[in-house]
């Protein structure tokens, strides 16, 4: 009874679709049938029955080949709307059988796996792309095979069981450009507080060249705040004209700040997002789900 239940489960979970070789198989069986039936030709009967039985046995084995497989996401990059990100998926075989000739398809991309040994897995890469920000479900992975006989394609879908957060598409004015436009916000290199004698470990960029030219010796510019200590104040409402554009703009800046190791705050209409108190992913997730 248990075997029957397993069989029904396998048949219902792994589907098959005939291809042109199936037509060939049918024509062969009909041809053999006519030859055998007209003349009571037992060798042909046997060949016909064997052909039919091979096809039936192949149908069973082909389903078992796929039923044993499961897939899950192993790792993935951050997902931004309208951008492709790499995603690693592991296809695992949980049985003592070897699975052969597997073809995995995700969002139109196919990857072939020659075999997956018993109790082992194979890792495959896909490019994942979503059009809209927000929380999404991963598309199911199609696992297919023509094994053992190529007259029908067996396939099954394995949900990757993962909700993914797609961040807004990072686009807009670059952070550097924005700084240049808003000089008052963070100042320029010449807005120094005073001069001091150049010290051995001073950055060459801090040298005050006019002093050197006037013969006053090598002097360094003295700043009240260094760049690392700067916390950028980003404002949701003023950064762009529409909500989506704002979110994209902020997303771009957040990513840039993370790359440049800059602290920042984002003033949202109802909340202040502080990079010192929240992780970048949490901030991005907030923006994604805004």
């Amino acid at each position: 009874m248990r075997s029957l239940r397993t069989f029904i489960r396998i048949v219902s979970s792994v589907k098959s679709r005939p291809n042109r070789y199936f037509t060939l198989l049918v024509i062969t069986i009909i041809g053999l049938f006519m030859l055998a039936y007209m003349h009571n030709y037992n060798i042909v009967y046997l060949v016909m029955f064997f052909t039919f039985s091979f096809a039936a046995a192949s149908s069973l084995i082909g389903r078992l080949n796929l039923d044993a497989l499961d897939a899950r996401v192993l790792s993935q990059e951050r997902l931004f709307a309208q951008n492709a990100s790499a995603c690693k998926v592991i296809v695992e075989n949980h049985t003592s059988r070897v699975s052969y000739a597997i073809e995995c398809t995700y969002a139109g991309q196919s990857r072939g796996i020659r075999r997956i040994d018993a109790y082992k897995g194979e890792i495959i890469d896909f490019d994942v792309r979503f059009d809209q920000r927000g929380e999404h479900d991963c598309l199911p992975l199609e696992i297919a095979s023509y094994f053992p006989l190529p007259y029908e394609r067996f396939f099954t879908f394995r949900g990757l069981h993962q909700k993914v957060m797609v961040y807004p598409e990072p686009k807009g004015v670059s952070l550097q450009e924005y700084y240049r436009q808003s000089l008052t916000l963070i100042g320029e290199r010449d807005d120094f507080e005073g001069l001091r004698t150049y010290q051995h470990d001073d950055n060459v960029a801090l040298i005050h060249w006019p002093s050197l030219a006037s013969g006053a010796g090598v002097m360094s510019k003295q700043f009240s705040h260094t760049r690392q200590d700067t916390t950028l104040d980003l404002d949701f409402l003023s950064c762009a004209s529409s909500d989506e554009a704002r979110l994209s703009q902020l997303c771009l800046w957040v990513v840039t700040c993370e790359r440049e190791h800059l602290s920042f705050t984002i003033t949202m209409p109802v909340q202040l997002l502080d990079s010192k108190k929240m992780t970048t992913d949490a901030i991005l997730a907030y923006l994604a789900s805004y």
Partner: peptide
């Protein structure tokens, strides 16, 4: 595949209706 096919073949061979008497 061959081993799985054999019982089916035996069953079909014995029971599949034959109408032709002539060889």
């Amino acid at each position: 595949l061959f081993a799985l096919a054999i019982p089916v073949v035996v069953l079909l061979f014995l029971l599949f209706p034959r109408i032709s008497f002539q060889k």
